[in-house]
Design a protein around this nucleic acid. Structure first.
Lengths: 248, 248
DNA sequence: TCCCCTTACTGGTCTGGACCAGATCAAGAC
DNA sequence: GTCTTGATCTGGTCCAGACCAGTAAGGGGA
């Protein structure tokens, strides 16, 4: 009646067609009929083999997508999701070493890097006046050639002058540490399921409205200064949160 | 071009009807036309005012649901979601004090409490042999009369003999501390978006397959013993994760 | 006043079509 | 060999219906 294993038990289906399709496909994926990255049969092919209307087929597929078992590539097909990256926000040593330690291939691409002026919100975050000069970097990060997140990083120009001369396709944490002597000693992280829309959906190449995970991290150094303010939008099926910490 | 505010910008809609409906409803919710807990107009009423097929209306509503702005009560209607509870897994003092501190009304209901034998997985968690006696407690927890999570708690009988004589409609942490001298000093927490199905969906009174958040927590005392193993299934729109911790 | 039963209403599921835009790939042109 | 072109396949969106099961509210009876 209670299993300790991580994935929840499949639903009973109760004669609901789309849940039966969901269970059938989930079973075939679990049996290894398709491997991570493989494409499922097309919706119309599933229609023929399953004897259901296409809308019903799509309901079942959307179900599996919400569970993170499969994902879609626009107008290309449905694919089996790779295993998620395990993410410990209290242990952040940087995306690259993190992903590599899990035997996956990370990559980073800088989309934008520019100077901005602090709005009211960012002024509050950095403890500066509105209009203070900041740097904004927008990056896209990949695991095994699949884009998994876009992030907006804001850094205080006063702590890292002339930051924009660097390339950000590598570790930003490394740049801040080696060139500016900025070391993170404390993180504040907030996470919330969200929908990926607009620019984020576009940057990840997904249909607007798909679920995602919004991670907002504020990093402080030993003097309590804000070293980095970072907002990340993850594909919801690409990440699993794991936290280990002492109780306070 | 970059706002620090927490919710992501709405999608541009691009002439897509269901996204336009989503934006229109989101704007009316943001404007306060409906308050948290209020019921939206019925799908058929929206159909008349919006001149679209019911399937299109439902697509737009499902969109808002995925974003956590609204939720559904089976065959009753669509309702505006209340603000989520902020949850810090490293700071867990117990659900009740936690929710009250945020000005909300918590409640707990025990669904089951029974003796079980450890399977292979649980034996590994507790560092005992398979078949070792454990206690399993299943509870449902509410915020402002709305069920927000179901949880399965496993406690080692060796650490807390005769635990089942207590009522669990109050703080379990308190019982373990005051009657057995068990204090949690370290937590390990894993979180992953999931779909709520079967028993979990039933216990929360929601449609099977809706998104949720699966939280698995292992609590240790100062001697490194497993005090509590806890698996929670949250409504995805009822919780927001916030972690604050030193970097290690 | 209270309870029960009827009834209208609500979302849940499903059908079987339609047209579109982008992805894909093979055949042909250079 | 490389590039272009076109046909085909894919999912994305939308329509207009249908029937079902559970909710909720109102009316009638005790």
């Amino acid at each position: 009646m209670f299993s300790g294993t991580i994935p929840a038990a499949a639903s009973p289906a109760d004669g609901v067609q789309y849940l039966e399709l969901r269970n059938a496909l989930a079973a075939r994926i679990a049996a290894g009929e398709w491997r991570p990255g493989d494409r499922l049969p097309s919706e119309r092919a599933l229609q023929v083999s399953g004897q259901a209307a296409r809308g019903t087929i799509r309901e079942g597929l959307a179900q599996l997508e919400a569970e993170g078992l499969i994902y879609r590539k626009d107008r290309s097909g449905w694919y089996v999701s790779p295993a998620p990256i395990v993410y410990d926000p209290t242990r952040w040593e940087g995306f690259i070493s993190y992903v590599e330690a899990q035997g996956r291939a990370p990559a980073t691409e800088t989309l934008d890097a520019m100077a901005i002026a602090a709005d009211a919100f960012l002024a509050g975050v950095f403890g500066r006046e509105a209009g203070a000069p900041l740097n904004l970097i927008r990056r896209r990060r990949y695991v095994d050639d699949r884009p998994v997140l876009v992030e907006y990083i804001v850094v205080d120009v006063a702590l890292a002058p002339d930051l924009l001369r660097f390339s950000f396709d590598q570790s930003l944490t490394g740049i801040l540490k080696s060139h500016y002597g900025l070391a993170v000693t404390r993180n504040k992280v907030e996470m919330q399921p969200c929908a990926l829309t607009g620019r984020e959906a576009e940057a990840l190449g997904i249909k607007p409205g798909l679920p995602g995970l919004n991670v907002v991290r504020t990093s402080y150094d030993a003097q309590g200064r804000v070293v980095e303010f970072d907002r990340e939008y993850w594909r919801h099926d690409a990440v699993k949160i794991s936290v280990e910490a002492r109780v306070r």
